[in-house]
């Protein structure tokens, strides 16, 4: 393709990626788009993204091919392959000739050669000091990528990083909002429960509150949970606090 043509396609690719970063987006979709664009735009045979799971183990989050050899290459352990090393070191790992890397990563060199990959490029997904994963590009020829492709690949890696972090911050803000909502809702429901108990036990609000609190403590129930139960079941004698006569 001509240089102008390629620039236009790249611009379109970035617009596509930016468009996917809207409010409610699926980060998995975004990562798949990134690896597909890498494979098609960068003259890479295959591409894959590694992210740590909740246990801290690296897993394939997206790959341009489901072929097991690619998955296996991506997930080789620390010191056994460039994909994990790029993540752990936070530095770019370039392997211009995989056959020549036998001394450093023997199992990687053998497995990659068997799969027909001759060179690769492992880019850390990094924001300032934090590395959150790696973007890995494989080619069937030696020599690695041109400087242009390296710049473009870094831009794709940045998009993936922003996408992942954006999704996390959205999720965290949802959690913060639901916690706030819970605190605010329980304020209302506790007052309502006091009213229910004040009527059913014929006591004033202070006594009603003491009764609910005593009941919550003696049964190890959270005050807001007990209050919600009382409001939903105002005549449930097993849940309602009993009057303690002096």
């Amino acid at each position: 393709m001509t240089a102008g043509n390629k620039e236009r396609r790249l611009a379109e690719a970035f617009v596509t990626l930016a468009d996917t970063l809207v409010d409610e987006y699926d980060v998995v979709d975004l990562l798949h788009t990134v690896v597909e664009l890498c494979a098609s735009m960068l003259d890479a045979t295959d591409a894959g993204i590694l992210l740590p799971n909740s246990a801290g183990e690296l897993e394939v989050a997206a790959s341009s091919s489901e072929r097991s050899h690619l998955i296996g290459l991506l997930q080789l352990g620390e010191g056994e392959g460039p994909c994990v090393d790029a993540y752990l070191s936070g530095s770019l790992v370039t392997v211009g000739n995989i056959a020549g890397s036998y001394a450093r990563w023997p199992s990687f060199a053998v497995a990659a050669a068997e799969s027909g990959y001759a060179s690769m490029y492992a880019i850390p997904l990094r924001l300032r000091k934090d590395t959150i994963g790696s973007l890995n590009l494989f080619r069937d020829r030696t020599g690695g990528f041109s400087e242009d492709d390296a710049v473009t690949a870094q831009a794709f890696a940045d998009i993936a990083t922003i996408g992942i972090l954006h999704e996390r911050s959205l999720r965290e803000s949802h959690i913060a909002r639901s916690q706030l909502q819970h605190a605010l809702d329980s304020r209302v429901v506790i007052e309502q429960a006091k009213g229910v108990v004040a009527h059913t036990q014929n006591v004033d609000m202070d006594v009603a509150f003491q009764m609910i609190r005593t009941r919550a403590r003696s049964t190890g129930t959270r005050l807001s949970v007990l209050a919600a139960h009382i409001v939903a079941n105002p005549f449930d004698e097993t849940a309602n606090p009993q009057r303690i006569d002096p």
């Binding site: 209302v188 007052e191 009213g195 229910v196 108990v197 004040a198």
Partner: peptide, 11 residues
Amino acid sequence: VHQATGMIIAQ
């Protein structure tokens, strides 16, 4: 208002 709502729930 919430306490009164609770009393009316029961009443």
